[in-house]
Write a protein that binds this DNA or RNA. Structure first.
Length: 279
DNA sequence: AAAACATCCAACCGCTGCTTT
DNA sequence: CAAAGCAGCGGTTGGATGTTT
């Protein structure tokens, strides 16, 4: 600890430290919480000898130091959940985070702002617009489901070769047969959307296909999402379902505990479960 | 190699609502 | 009941890092 930064405590107000946390501060906070637990952040900050606000301590603990916090790559399954839940609840990040164990509201919020809003920008539409929601539902979600299915297949193959290997990455590893789900989704899309009608029809191989197909079909579009160079002209076609044909707000959302009992496990990320949320 | 630009993400800020006094 | 204190939330910012020119 750099004691030079911690001026001698006195009753008069000491300007709390701000900015990036040092490893010493992390150590102090982690140690204190390990012994005394969380809560009462203002007094915790004082008692732990941290010249930080309670707010700052809480944020550091919840978003970074907590042992069960997961950072880094947002998996396709997690992306799927975020998109589905955001469409249902809006920017209720803490609520959404409850359904992604180990992920913080901050991380989900960052993901949304950096990745999802970027695509909205490329489409030149608002993230809250029907246009963009349709893009998510009929282009992004099917693609994510395909990726999850592919991950599952890869994980299955890996499991055959290495039964001892546990899945630590949440990228798959379950045994859900996704084909019926994809077919179901495809039927739904084909009945209402020319873009959606082929979005799932390319599940066998999204890496091939001509540029012409990309515009008229959707495989390649889905592969690269929305390449800015297309000018998104295809998207302006009146191919979306009529109002009321989909309903993001319908249905009852089970509590997180009901879904996975508050624990992280592989079945948590089954496509089946995620798809149920989407319905 | 370096400057310019883009992206990511940890951390802060202001606000709201709940609890305590 | 009102005021004060606190926790939590969502929006925003700025520095670090990566990528492009």
């Amino acid at each position: 600890m750099d004691m030079g930064e911690l001026r001698i405590h006195s009753e008069e107000e000491i300007e709390p430290r701000r900015g990036p946390w040092t490893s010493d501060e992390d150590f102090l906070l982690t140690n204190y919480i390990a012994i005394h637990g969380e809560g009462r952040w203002n007094s915790l900050a004082r008692c732990a000898g941290l010249n930080r606000t309670g707010k700052s301590c809480r944020l550091r603990w919840l978003n970074y130091l907590r042992p069960d916090v997961r950072r880094g790559n947002i998996t396709p399954a997690e992306q799927l959940l975020i998109i589905v839940l955001q469409s249902r609840w809006g920017n209720r990040w803490s609520k959404i985070a409850q359904y992604l164990p180990g992920r913080t509201d901050n991380e989900i919020k960052n993901y949304w702002r950096t990745r999802v809003q970027k695509h909205a920008k490329q489409l030149r539409c608002d993230v809250n617009s029907k246009q963009f929601k349709d893009a998510l539902r009929y282009l992004w979600l099917p693609r994510l489901i395909e990726r999850i299915a592919a991950d599952n297949s890869a994980a299955e193959a890996a499991d055959c070769g290495d039964l001892a290997g546990g899945d630590q990455t949440f990228s798959g590893g379950n045994n859900v047969d996704v084909i019926p789900l994809l077919e179901e989704s495809g039927r739904e899309s084909s009945s209402s959307s020319s873009v959606g009608s082929t979005s799932l029809g390319c599940s066998t191989d999204v890496t091939t296909g001509s540029p012409a197909n990309a515009v008229s079909g959707g495989c390649e579009i889905m592969q690269d999402f929305w390449p800015p160079e297309t000018g998104c002209e295809w998207w302006r076609e009146p191919v979306m379902p009529s109002p009321g044909e989909y309903d993001y707000d319908g249905g009852l959302m089970p509590e997180p505990e009901q879904l996975w009992g508050g624990e992280m496990n592989d079945s948590l990320w089954s496509v089946e479960r995620i798809w149920q949320l989407q319905q």
